[in-house]
């Protein structure tokens, strides 16, 4: 084989490897970006808590939702300032707050087991400092905060829905 042929094959292998790992590396950010855009469009703006309806086959957008959970979701954009997040305690139920960065990584999670039944109140900042109270540093400017509440059965939705509506996120400057 000619020298040019060998070089071409080597470049082909290198290009295949770059293509493979490039797609793998870029996929989470791309998929998260699309999800962020979709939820934000539904909310009308970022930094607002949306209380999602009961998951069902008719609900599209985020895949593989659990039909046993009630979800409230906040897409955040910290370019506007720090974000205050509050989550009420729901007695005798599993509930949690999880925050994801723009690469889909969960950088914060806390559930009723961690808070010992107390509500969550914190400020999310991409500086990780400033303000009073509990400050949580975000590794990215954009991301998603997700509140989950586990229903013992789907018939509980009507009773739990008003309780979770005090979950909130808002820019505090």
């Amino acid at each position: 084989m000619s020298k040019a042929g060998i070089i071409s094959i080597v470049l082909t292998v290198i290009a295949a490897i770059i293509g493979y790992f490039g797609v793998m590396a870029l996929a989470p950010g791309y998929i998260m970006g699309r999800a962020w855009d979709g939820v934000t469009e539904r909310a009308g703006a970022p930094n607002m808590m949306i209380h999602m309806p009961l998951p069902s086959a008719a609900r599209r957008g985020i895949v593989r939702l659990s039909p046993d959970l009630i979800y409230s979701i906040c897409t955040f954009d910290l370019s506007k300032g720090d974000l205050a997040i509050t989550v009420p305690a729901i007695d005798n139920h599993y509930w949690s707050l999880t925050m994801f960065d723009d690469q889909t990584n969960a950088f914060f999670v806390e559930s009723d087991r961690d808070t010992k039944g107390q509500p969550i109140s914190l400020t999310l900042s991409n500086k990780g400092t400033g303000g009073e109270g509990r400050i949580v540093a975000s590794p990215s400017q954009k991301g998603i905060a997700l509140v989950r509440i586990l229903m013992n059965n789907r018939g509980e939705y009507d009773a739990l829905d008003p309780l979770r509506r005090s979950a909130d996120c808002k820019i505090v400057g």
Binding site: F21, V23, M24, P28, M32, I62, R64, Q103, T104, A106
Partner: peptide, 26 residues
């Protein structure tokens, strides 16, 4: 799953098929 410690492949697949999954501790 759901963690920055996951492999490149796991993170990509979970992003598509299980976006916003809880980490192992939960």
């Amino acid at each position: 799953i759901g963690s920055a410690d996951a492999s490149l492949q796991t993170r990509a697949v979970i992003a598509l098929r299980g976006l916003l999954a809880l980490p192992d501790s939960e």
